[in-house]
Amino acid sequence: MAGDSLFGVHGAALEVRSQRMGVLASNIANASTPGFKARDVDFQAALQSLEGGADGIAAATRYRVPTQTSMDGNTVELNAEQTAFAENAVQYQTTLSFLNGRIGQITRALKGE
């Protein structure tokens, strides 16, 4: 899907980052729901399955293994989720700047500057 396109791997990467932001937001939203199992997107697997045209990001979403279990069966560890969310936001912005760079490059080439 993304191999020969204008944006290379970054288009698919943006999609995975966006979905991961949603999954991490779901974890944070359910931080106090009893029995909720936290999930996360395996970035590498998701990217590969998107590029290979497989069933996409849903197949690369895994349950998180908690380092400390809680009595109500909830596996959300808020500090880990917040760190992952912040990290993912930065990575999303990185992907955006790669895309912006590519767009600028193409625009300059088209204008012949």
Binding site: G22, V23, S26, A29, N30, T33, P34, A58, T61
Partner: peptide, 15 residues
């Protein structure tokens, strides 16, 4: 009583 509400279409879950 909080209950997870999972959305199959987007893979997101709210409460």
């Amino acid at each position: 009583v909080f209950r997870t509400s999972f959305d199959q279409a987007s893979g997101l879950a709210t409460v």
